[in-house]
Every structure is written in structure tokens, then in C-alpha cells.
Simulated assay, not measured.
Amino acid sequence: MNRSEIGNALRVLRNASGKEAKAVARSAVMSPSKLSRIETGKVSPSADDVDRILTAIGVSDDVKTEYMDAARAAATEATAWRLIQRAGLHKAQQRLRDVEARMSLLRVFQPALVPGLLQTPEYIRAILSRYDDLSEETVRRTASARIDRQEILYDESKTLQFVITEPVLRWLIVPPTVMVSQLDRLVSASRLPSVDVRVVPTNGRKYDIPNHAFAIQDDRAVAVETVHAEVIATDPRDVSLYVSKFEKFSESAVSGDAMRALIEGIRDEFLREQETA
């Protein structure tokens, strides 16, 4: 079921129950206008919204289970990268900027690359230039749009938390000179009032697996990066799984001066290698 079908089904169930929209909305702790937008497919309901509406309508447990499964499936949306690329990578960056402008808390876990908001222009271009099917103009516009997004780093009304794994700092997917500048950028960004950068070191016992990158937008949604697609999850139960995973990695990471010392030590290793090359 898509959001329109779920909304229509909820309206049919409500009408069959004989309950008026205002009464259902009141019991579901939402405004009548929100219920109307859900029923007409104008708003995509969260799984929690559907749960409260079904409870207010008073459906049987079997019916509730059926529609809750559909709601949770609809609360997860995957968009193939090729479709995002076809629509315009720079437009995707602009949409992200709009989303980030509305949130107050952003938590990013990244085991593969330096997070986009912390990337230098050289790192951005080097990453994008790996793709043979991207034109120079596409690379330029996408890099520019990502740099524009970085203005959020200086917004002290936001809280931006980044947890990356140590291999990200050592992974030379870019030339060493680019990586040296990128590591310096991480150190300088970590000193901004709204920014918290943490690194999970490779040494020591580990109790979880990095899996893949993800970004938690407040506590409302999670954007997950897979090989073929970006997956957006909005079911509160799914979001809570990622919040828990982020917090556990954050607790095992180094921060502050210890984090900066780790990054600067790796940077100095690259500089020594260049001097002896």
C-alpha cells in the first residue's frame, strides 16, 4: 500500500465504524485537518499515526495487525541512486539543505567516507570525479550545492553530531595531499560550537558492526545509504534502532582533544610518507 491507499483504507474503516472524523481525531490526539489530509493521501502517516487512528476507530486486533504492517512498509521508502542522479544530484543536495534547515538535531554515522557536511571542496570533487558518467558540469554544480549545505555548521541553534570510524581517516580514496587537507578540516570543524566530531578507534574490543552510513534527522527519520539506493525510514521503531546504534558507537568513540590528537597523528603519518616518497 502507498500513502494514498492507506489513507483511503483508514477513511473506509472510519465510515464503517460510524464514528465522525472529529471524534476519531480527538481520540487519536491529532487535529481534524491532519486526519483529513491523511485520509485524502495528502500527508504520509507515520506508523504511530496509523496505530492511534486504528485504536480510535476501534478495529479488531487482526485488522489492526494487517494495516500496521502496511503502514510500516509504507514508512520505508527507497530511491535508487540512478534515479536521484537522473533528477539531478545538485537538486538532491538542495533538498537535503532544506531538510537540514528544519531540523534541530542531526546525527551522522559514517564508516566509509568523511561526512558530506565536513568534506573539503577538493575531497568532494575527488569523490564525485570517480564516476565516469558524471559530466564536469554535474560535478561542479553538485560540489557547489554540497558546500552551500555546510553553512549549517555555523548555525549555533543546531546540534550536529558526527561519528566516524578510524578507517575513514586512513582510506586513501583521494590523493594523500587531499586527505591531509581533509583531516585538517575535520579538526577545525570539531571546534565549532554546534559540532561534535567523534572517531571510533580501530583498537580495543568492539561490540557492534559498522554496517553502513546513516543520518538521523531529529528523531523523526533516518536516511540510510546502501550500494544501490537511499532508504528513508520513518517508523519510530526503526528510527529508535538507529538512535541506539549511534549512541553505542558514540560512547565507544574518542572526542575532544583525544579525537583531535588521533586525527593529527594520522595526518602527520601521511606528511612523513610524502616527504620520504
Rank of each mutant, 00 (worst) to 15 (best):
Q93W: 06
Q93Y: 06
Q94S: 06
L96H: 08
L96E: 09
L96A: 08
D98F: 08
D98C: 04
V99M: 08
E100I: 10
A101R: 07
R102L: 13
S104H: 06
S104N: 10
L105Q: 05
L105R: 04
L106D: 00
R107D: 03
V108G: 00
V108A: 06
F109W: 08
F109L: 09
F109V: 07
P111H: 02
P111D: 04
A112P: 01
L113M: 09
P115R: 00
G116W: 02
L117K: 00
L118W: 02
Q119R: 09
P121R: 13
E122C: 09
E122Y: 07
Y123V: 06
I124S: 09
R125P: 00
A126N: 06
A126Q: 02
S129F: 09
S129D: 05
S129A: 14
Y131E: 13
Y131K: 08
D132V: 11
D132L: 13
D133E: 15
L134M: 10
E136V: 13
E136Y: 12
E136A: 15
E137D: 14
E137I: 13
T138E: 15
T138W: 07
V139N: 02
V139D: 04
R140I: 09
T142F: 03
T142Q: 11
T142P: 02
A143I: 07
A143R: 01
A143L: 05
S144F: 11
R146G: 10
R146D: 08
I147G: 07
I147L: 15
I147C: 08
D148T: 09
D148H: 12
Q150S: 08
E151F: 14
E151D: 15
E151Q: 15
I152P: 02
I152W: 09
I152Q: 05
